[in-house]
Write a protein that binds this DNA or RNA. Structure first.
Lengths: 220, 220
DNA sequence: CAAAAAAGTTTGACTACTCAAACTTTAATT
DNA sequence: AATTAAAGTTTGAGTAGTCAAACTTTTTTG
């Protein structure tokens, strides 16, 4: 079994590879993400490479192997099932569960994971709308686009909030932006790089493109 | 915060001090309990002593300080709340939960512990009848005596099974011996060091004194 | 394209935890 | 009381993870 530290490196690498156009991660960002020095990250990459969890040449990009990818999906599954449990059953605040799940995800045995998943009714997404990989590692991402790409007068439904930051989640919840909520795009201002949206029975909210890019929606 | 390893040492020390008549633990038993060598245990005791969690002189007994005791009770609280959750909510087998809780107890934040405890209705004992310390560290042990000390024809109620061993718990469950179950002591044989007990709607079971010492009961 | 900045690597050192094996002290037993 | 066994300690070494700081390579930019 991978240690807790290794799981965290793998998880961070997965996310970095996703968001990079080349599909490869760099040591500097990885180190920053995990709060360690570049040297520490480099030596860990060497170990992961030796364990065949990543593919990396010196002074070049890092990519997960199939084996590494499997671990990443497994950790994400545990993380998201726990988040769902914490919000749905223990009624923890939406904005707090990420940090809490971070600690618990490494202590969950396959048996408990399965029981928990079963108890929750095999959820397909967590409270933020992030897809939960199934036990085999299959992820079914719902078709969606960033709210930032929407036109004026479009009617959409929020499917996912793509930011685990407490402050942003707090803001989103306060504005009524949660998965399942319907929105109307009132206006779009390319010059101001912002748009105004309105949820049912709510005041209109102005969002920057940057904030709107983190909110994934589907057209209704 | 104490590391996971430190928590495990403290917990083991608590149990050893309890069961020793002198109230002090020894390095040899401690090492055996944790599956480490004597040398490893000695060096850890030195560190715990430095951190004022235990009181220990070279070549003499080890006792927990008030600070160490508080940690022990806290770990036990987490452990037992988790066990209760695993049995009551996730329907895990009585005999399996100890090992599972062992892994989870170190990852539970105070916030989640409290929510879980609340969700379960602030249970006072875990599925084996072990008392759950409250948030302040108070333990209310129900008055009880070992089944081994009972006389023939006594009618008693099981309050606790004092053994976390899977095989023993499996045997106990199979024989119908769980907290809350009423028993009649049919006969006692001091020569054979055994006694015969019967639960309602069950065949009589013969227990050795050793096994019967692990089953705590109250007279009804 | 040369200089500066950024990214990546190496080295030496440190903490936490572990073992094996030699050693010392205490307890048990003859 | 002397010997042996058990309990406890010390030492030297190893793994996992970390940092600071010197260093090298790559990328950016004036």
């Amino acid at each position: 079994m991978a240690t807790e530290t290794v799981e965290n490196y793998i998880k961070a690498l997965y996310a970095l590879c996703r968001e990079s156009p080349s599909g490869e991660a760099g040591v500097a960002r990885l180190a920053q993400e995990l709060g360690v020095t570049k040297g520490t990250a480099t030596s860990m990459i060497k170990r992961l490479s030796l364990a065949r969890l990543v593919k990396a040449e010196p002074y070049s990009g890092i990519a997960l192997t199939a084996k590494g990818n499997k671990i990443a999906l497994d950790v994400m599954r545990r993380h998201r099932v726990i988040e769902t449990f914490l919000v749905r059953i223990l009624k923890l605040d939406w904005a707090d569960v990420h940090e809490e799940a971070e600690r618990l995800e490494h202590a969950l045995s396959p048996r408990i994971l399965d029981r928990l998943d079963h108890f929750l009714g095999r959820p397909s997404t967590d409270p933020h709308g992030d897809p939960i990989p199934d036990a085999a590692g299959n992820v079914s991402e719902a078709r969606s686009k960033p709210l930032a790409k929407c036109r004026a007068r479009e009617r959409v439904c929020i499917v996912r909030i793509k930011d685990q930051n407490r402050a942003f989640l707090k803001f989103a919840a306060d504005s009524g932006f949660m998965p399942g909520v319907n929105l109307v795009v009132q206006s779009v201002s390319p010059q101001a790089a912002s748009l105004i949206v309105r949820a049912a029975r709510r005041k209109p909210v102005t969002l920057s493109q940057i904030a709107a890019a983190k909110i994934l929606v589907k057209v209704i």
